[in-house]
């Protein structure tokens, strides 16, 4: 993975340089944006509801036992907003969308469609990478905002219906409001934006670097997902350190 980091940075830099052309490619950006939303929305809702629920289930009874039922909402709220929603959704999108990007661009590379673009003087970075990167950078933070809200709702639901806790919605959200600040959500969304850039860059790079036939495409897809997840977890630590201070 690390031997490709320079190439990935270069690809990102070139895409950044092409950003003024994003408006010209808006049709493709919208297509990608809706594809990401369409492919991920239901999964995001289900995953985030259960993440919030399981967090509530894991922490709630212990806190209630120690006489801290009012802390459940705050802990679930903070954990979901700062960490779980951004990281879990990024991993989900790396698997669902990053793999699709690498496969699509990889097959275009293998079947000479990218060469055909170049012979028509169409820059593959402008035509393929830019719309995907812009779309994922817009879509993923939006999905994470939704995931945070649903995660909180899942946590509150489990806290209320679980007989070990039986914490009313009002108490749960009252505590959540007192502990979670807007900057916590903003930090989570900012981290997600960075993860989206990582997923888009890594996946497009792997697609463009595909060699060989269908086997090469398979290898690229695997690399795109694995490398994205590794970088997401590494950058999660780095960004968390920076944002906490």
């Amino acid at each position: 993975m690390f031997d490709n980091i320079g190439q990935m940075v270069l690809l990102f830099w070139r895409t950044l340089g092409a950003l003024p052309l994003a408006w010209r490619q808006r049709q493709k950006v919208f297509e990608q944006f809706f594809e990401i939303g369409n492919a991920s929305l239901l999964m995001v809702c289900m995953l985030s509801f259960f993440i919030g629920g399981v967090l509530s289930l894991q922490t709630g009874p212990a806190l209630v036992e120690r006489g801290l039922p009012s802390a459940v909402g705050g802990i679930v709220g903070l954990a979901v907003a700062r960490e779980l929603a951004p990281v879990m959704m990024a991993i989900l999108i790396a698997g669902r969308i990053g793999s699709a990007m690498a496969a699509e661009i990889g097959s275009m590379r293998v079947y000479q469609e990218i060469d055909a673009l170049r012979t028509m003087n169409i820059n593959p970075i402008h035509y393929l990478v830019l719309p995907r990167l812009v779309a994922i950078a817009l879509a993923l933070p939006m999905l994470v905002v939704l995931a945070i809200l649903i995660g909180w709702f899942g946590g509150a639901t489990v806290a209320e219906i679980n007989h070990h806790m039986a914490i009313p919605f009002a108490v749960f959200f009252g505590d959540l409001r007192s502990m979670v600040e807007l900057k916590d959500v903003a930090n989570g969304v900012f981290k997600t934006f960075c993860f989206a850039i990582i997923i888009g860059t890594v996946s497009c790079h792997q697609g463009l670097a595909t060699i060989g036939g269908p086997r090469g495409i398979g290898r690229s897809v695997t690399k795109a997902v694995v490398n994205s997840i590794i970088l997401i977890v590494m950058f999660d630590y780095i960004l968390t350190r920076l944002l906490l201070h």
């Binding site: 699509e104 097959s107 275009m108 079947y111 000479q112 469609e113 060469d115 055909a116 673009l117 012979t119 028509m120 003087n121 169409i122 035509y127």
Partner: peptide
């Protein structure tokens, strides 16, 4: 200069008409 590829190398996500007009559309 134009190259007609061995496989044709048409973009599979576009119709034939969109493929043929791609150069003019993109530029």
């Amino acid at each position: 200069m134009a190259l007609v590829f061995q496989s044709g190398a048409l973009l599979n996500s576009l119709t034939v008409g969109e493929n043929v007009g791609l150069y003019l559309t993109e530029h």
